[in-house]
Computed example of a mutant assay.
Amino acid sequence: MGIQHIQSLELLFHKVAKLHSNTVHSLLSGKDVYPGQPPLLRALAERDGQSQKELAETMQITPATLTVMLGRMEKTGLVERKPDVTDQRISRVYITAKGHQGLLGVNETMQLMEETCFAMFTTEEKIIFRRLLLQMYDNLNHADFKHLVD
């Protein structure tokens, strides 16, 4: 059974999202940038020298997750951590020249993905699709699933 025969919107959405994610990961792997890292590079490009606490809040991840991510990114030379000049307890994160190059690669990859994904879409279809995705996001963001988990 081919993808055209899938009736469930949820399953089709999942398959498209997974294919998109796997393709992006594959394209970025040669640039030393891995899943989860592009938002951090963008955040630092917008405001370099953020504290680890600020970055974790910006990215909506736990400080422990950020610490692991920063360790990997330091090893590949994308970022560097330095103590704050006024408070040695605070670690500030800076994007390196290699990090800026990685971000250029990310931006090029995302541009290619957008062009590829929406190649056969009209401007109107893109506007409608964006509106529908925003509605899905809003639906999920406001859904109350707590009673189903307990």
Results as ranks from 00 to 15, higher is better:
Ile6Asn: 03
Glu10Gln: 10
Leu12Pro: 00
Phe13Ile: 10
Phe13Asp: 06
His14Glu: 14
His14Ser: 07
Lys15Val: 11
Lys18Asn: 13
Lys18Arg: 15
Leu19Gln: 13
His20Ser: 11
His20Lys: 10
Ser21Val: 06
Asn22Ala: 09
Asn22Arg: 14
Asn22Lys: 12
Thr23Phe: 03
Val24Pro: 03
Ser26Glu: 12
Leu28Asn: 07
Lys31Tyr: 11
Val33Tyr: 05
Val33Asn: 07
Tyr34Arg: 08
Tyr34Ser: 11
Pro38Ile: 05
Pro39His: 09
Pro39Gly: 04
Leu41Gln: 05
Leu41Glu: 05
Ala43Asn: 04
Leu44Asn: 08
Leu44Asp: 03
Ala45Phe: 10
Glu46Gln: 08
Arg47Thr: 14
Asp48Leu: 03
Gly49His: 09
Gly49Trp: 03
Gln52Trp: 06
Gln52Tyr: 01
Lys53Ala: 01
Glu54Ser: 10
Leu55Arg: 02
Leu55Ser: 02
Leu55Lys: 01
Ala56Thr: 02
Glu57Cys: 02
Met59Asp: 02
Gln60Arg: 13
Gln60Ala: 13
Ile61Cys: 03
Ile61Glu: 06
Ala64Lys: 13
Ala64Glu: 11
Thr65Arg: 08
Thr65Pro: 00
Leu66Gly: 04
Thr67Phe: 06
Thr67Glu: 11
Met69Ile: 06
Met69Cys: 00
Met73Ser: 04
Lys75Ile: 08
Lys75Glu: 15
Thr76Ser: 14
Thr76Tyr: 08
Gly77Lys: 09
Gly77His: 08
Gly77Ser: 09
Gly77Tyr: 10
Val79His: 10
Val79Phe: 05
Val79Cys: 12
Arg81Ala: 07
Arg81Phe: 04
Arg81Val: 07
Lys82Phe: 04
Pro83His: 13
Asp84Met: 09
Val85Arg: 14
Thr86Pro: 00
Asp87Gly: 01
Gln88Trp: 07
Gln88Gly: 06
Ser91Val: 01
Ser91Leu: 11
Ser91Asn: 10
Ser91Gln: 15
Arg92Asn: 15
Val93Asn: 03
Tyr94Val: 03
Tyr94His: 13
Thr96Phe: 09
Thr96Ser: 12
Ala97Gly: 04
Ala97Asn: 09
Lys98Asn: 13
Gly102Met: 08
Leu103Cys: 01
Val106Leu: 05
Gln111Tyr: 14
Met113Ile: 14
